[in-house]
């Protein structure tokens, strides 16, 4: 039976954490699961912690606001500092080590570091560090099938930007193989 996931994705505005969250939500839609996606829209976005909560479940979702994530995808230091202590026991953290110099490892939480921003630059995938991160998250928590994730990508990239599909696929693969 597919698992319930309560995920927070956080970073600076512009790093694409809301889009990465939308991909997870769209994967849930494709697999006909219960899901919610809730962005932060308050002043904290200006302070460096744009974030969104994504829930995937087979039961109707109660509060869409995730307070104790079982997975955290995090792309900057302020967000890491803000959310790391909230991760549930046994939870998974995917941290962009290019952007987060000070990474602490709480007991009972699995922290995976990946230099996603650096990788994106080295592989000519600038701006797709979020997708590399998502690939790594997919590998660690398996929130949908591989076919679904690709279908979600196809669905979320607008018709006018289809040339970005292949670079996005490359970025996903890079994260999955890291």
């Amino acid at each position: 039976m597919p698992k319930t996931h309560n995920i927070i994705l956080a970073g600076f505005g512009g790093q694409g954490v809301l889009f990465a969250g939308k991909l997870i939500a769209t994967a849930g839609l494709i697999e006909d699961r219960e899901l919610s996606w809730l962005p932060s829209y308050g002043p904290e976005m200006r302070g460096g912690t744009a974030n969104c909560s994504v829930c995937l479940s087979d039961e109707p979702i109660g509060s869409p606001l995730v307070l104790e994530p079982d997975a955290l995808l995090v792309m900057n230091q302020p967000s890491f500092d803000k959310f790391i202590e909230t991760v549930a026991k046994g939870g998974v953290v995917i941290a962009d080590s290019t952007m987060i110099p000070k990474i602490t490892m709480p007991f009972d939480v699995s922290v995976y570091t990946i230099p996603a921003t650096q990788l994106s630059e080295e592989h000519d995938l600038k701006g797709l560090a979020n997708i590399i991160m998502l690939g790594k998250l997919f590998k660690e928590i398996d929130f949908c099938s591989a076919e679904t994730l690709d279908a979600a990508l196809v669905k979320c990239i607008p018709a006018k930007k289809q040339h970005l599909l292949e670079p996005n696929r490359k970025a996903l693969a890079l994260g999955m193989d890291y």
Binding site: K22, A25, L29, L35, S36, W37, L38, P39, I61, P64
Partner: peptide, 10 residues
């Protein structure tokens, strides 16, 4: 409310 306005669901 702001939560229902901002959130996405199917």
């Amino acid at each position: 409310d702001g939560m229902l306005g901002q959130m996405m669901e199917p």
